[in-house]
């Protein structure tokens, strides 16, 4: 059970959180302008790093805020949020 650092509530057990995948994938400003390939890329393709991952989490059973953290996908080391 990981202990994740909620920036608002402090460290809490993993079961309180929801995972939101790779961070920094913005919803396209004008989806209608994207061709099918680019749209599919937005919809379906995310990094799958074996190593450090910058990713979104939400403190679902706590403050319900979304935040970004860096986690190592092999060792589960967490880099404290800046």
């Amino acid at each position: 059970m990981m202990s994740l650092p909620c920036p608002h509530c402090g460290p809490r057990d993993e079961t309180e959180f929801g995972y939101g995948g790779q961070a920094g994938v913005a919803y396209p400003a004008r989806p209608g302008d994207l061709d099918d390939r680019a749209w599919a890329e937005y919809l379906f393709v995310r990094d799958n790093p074996r190593g450090w991952s910058t990713e979104r989490w939400v403190h679902r059973a706590g403050c319900r805020q979304w935040f970004v953290l860096r986690r190592h996908t092999v060792t589960h080391e967490i880099e404290s949020p800046a």
Binding site: P28, R30, P31, G32, L34, D36, W39, L43
Partner: peptide
């Protein structure tokens, strides 16, 4: 008006 909503773009796929 070409206003977007979640899912709109996908509904245009082949």
């Amino acid at each position: 008006e070409g206003a977007d909503f979640v899912g709109a773009r996908s509904l245009q796929r082949a």
